[in-house]
Nucleic acid binder design. Structure first.
Lengths: 351, 351
DNA sequence: GTGAAAGCGCTAACAC
DNA sequence: GTGTTAGCGCTTTCAC
């Protein structure tokens, strides 16, 4: 019972050759309907399933897609993006007979590059997802070009790319947050950014700055964090210890925003009365902190789905169109309110 | 340049047969040192790498391990366990020439079972990790037995298992939390549990109950949550609306604890003065909420490492010993303090 | 329309 | 010791 049946067994039972079975299975022309039916019946009877490994060998394909997650250990459990993204990817792959092979690297670029090299050298995957595209020339682009590994990038709409891209504009969400704050009367709106070499670190900061200027305001201070709670807390302290602290802070992710709220509490600064705060991601926790966080919703599952579809298309057809996802949108909760402290508003205005 | 060299090319260049190359590569006896050197030189010169796919076919092995993550969509981004666990797994697999194939299912048991079936039918993996073992007969055990797929389970030390297990006792951590609370003078210690069909839901609750009794106390109420923030918030409301609310709550994870703290804030209940709270996981955020959360540290990375080592051993050698990980430990922060409200202590005592 | 046979690239049993 | 050869299970070309 252990040894599973092979195509030869099916052929024998159906009274045809192996080739015929193969043709029948893949609905290729050249096999009479009656014969095909007989073959399929034999296959079903034997419980035959084509061997994925044998197909992989003769097709010189892996029938698998790869994702290399490069994250510092601290952020590994806290980043809500990847799990959701992966879930989205899976919904597409499951039906396509493709698997997802994952690699996580916690070290630096060397280790990450080694990860891609390994995936390519072993022929483990037919293509990879490139998340967190670095701003200003991501070294992985050249690497994958060299490895001849098809890829789909996750990036901003405006950045050119040698690979098909799934783009999502963080801008509208950030702009909506700034507009919301400006509309409430905030004049001094600060930003806690993510690492600037990452597109979502750089891009959100850029969007914040542009949006603030749109409202005729001078961008408040901006501090670069690292997307971790610890980093968010440190950045927030820097901002709040300033002589003229901001009356609102736009954070590049929820985790830093939540840590920021905590710092404010510790300093006796009330939210939202004394300080308004917005996050980014709309993690499940965002609605359950005190006060519930106004944040920008990011559809990571949707990105995963779109990226998987695009990469499948690229791998199967040799080329694929980039797709642009609907922009992020603001979810208003209770961490934002009109600036309560006239003094701080006055200070901000008087700059 | 595209077509990579095959073992035949190497054999030709080295002036030997394919078989010799294979032997040389795998350091098998039966090939003269000089010949071996010549072969390796030829291989290096041609930049030859053995084809993983061909090896997989002739070995009838996948050289990959599988993990099926079954999680409801809401929890996907918030559960800190898997990313860390996977990182631990990877550290072991990278050097072993094994890959990790991931599957995430958000639906019910049917979908999950289908996931394992697919992995097995396609021969995608040589073994799988079984996390979240269900308490009281996990259906996956029988399924994997049927599929003849080697597996390693993640479970509690005391549960018997037909597969090698990596066990971690949540008990000591929970007991330490209860001891800490009891030592502070709490008499009415409640619990917000995880789903009881899961071992970490059930086990933590059991440990809480046993520990409370150890201190001669009657277990306070316990409410079953679902490990999400929303669930933690709801459970906390139920507990705090009670006539005789607890003076301390032991949560089965950080996420629910953080949501619980929020609910307390909203109800005007001060933490830790009016209510002490402990979590479980020690997520990065735990130290950056207000107040910083006293919690139990869980070494998910270490579990991943141990599980990977065990599964590799099982797959390669056909059998493996279970391993028991060092117990979880308490991290005391500032969400716990002596019960401040004498009335509630009195009430609890008077039950 | 159908079947035979030659790969895909490596492994391992078996002669030499 | 070293080389030869027959698989692993499927795909696909090419005669029939």
């Amino acid at each position: 019972m252990r040894k599973s049946p092979t195509i030869a067994d099916v052929a024998r039972v159906a009274g045809v050759s192996k080739g015929a079975v193969s043709f029948a299975l893949n609905n290729r022309p050249g096999v009479a309907p009656a014969t095909r039916a007989r073959i399929l019946a034999a296959a079903k009877e034997l419980g035959w399933q084509p061997s994925h490994r044998a197909r992989a060998l003769s097709h010189s394909q892996a029938f698998a897609l790869g994702l290399v997650m490069a994250r510092p250990p601290e952020l590994l459990g806290a980043d809500p993006f990847f799990p959701a993204f992966i879930a989205g990817v899976e919904t597409e792959l499951a039906g396509a007979g493709q698997a997802l092979v994952l690699q996580v690297v916690t070290g630096g670029w060397e280790e990450e590059a080694a990860g891609y090299r390994r995936l390519a050298a072993d022929g483990r995957v037919d293509g990879v997802f490139l998340s967190d595209i670095r701003h200003g020339g991501d070294p992985r682009l050249a690497l994958l070009e060299e490895l001849q590994l098809p890829a789909v990038t996750l990036q901003r709409p405006d950045t050119p790319s040698s690979f098909p891209a799934v783009t999502l504009d963080d801008g509208p969400g950030i702009r909506a947050a700034v507009e919301h704050l400006a509309g409430l009367g905030h004049r001094r709106i600060a930003h806690v950014a993510g690492p600037q070499q990452f597109i979502h670190g750089f891009g959100r900061r850029e969007a914040w700055e542009a949006a603030v200027r749109t409202f005729g305001l001078e961008p408040g201070p901006s501090v670069v964090g690292d997307f971790t709670a610890a980093g968010g807390a440190a950045a927030t302290r820097r901002l709040l210890w300033d002589d003229t602290p901001p009356s609102a802070i736009v954070y590049a992710n929820d985790l830093m925003a939540i840590a920021g709220i905590t710092v404010a509490h510790e300093l006796g600064i009330r939210i939202p009365e004394d300080l308004s705060v917005t996050g980014f991601d709309d993690t499940e926790l965002a609605g359950h902190v005190h006060p519930p966080l106004t944040t920008v919703r990011l559809d990571a599952v949707g990105m995963g789905r779109a990226a998987a579809r695009t990469l499948l298309q690229l791998v199967e057809a040799g080329s694929a169109e980039s797709v642009e996802l609907p922009p992020t949108e603001l979810v208003v909760r209770r961490s934002t309110a009109p600036p309560g402290d006239p003094a701080s508003v006055g200070r901000a205005t008087s700059r």
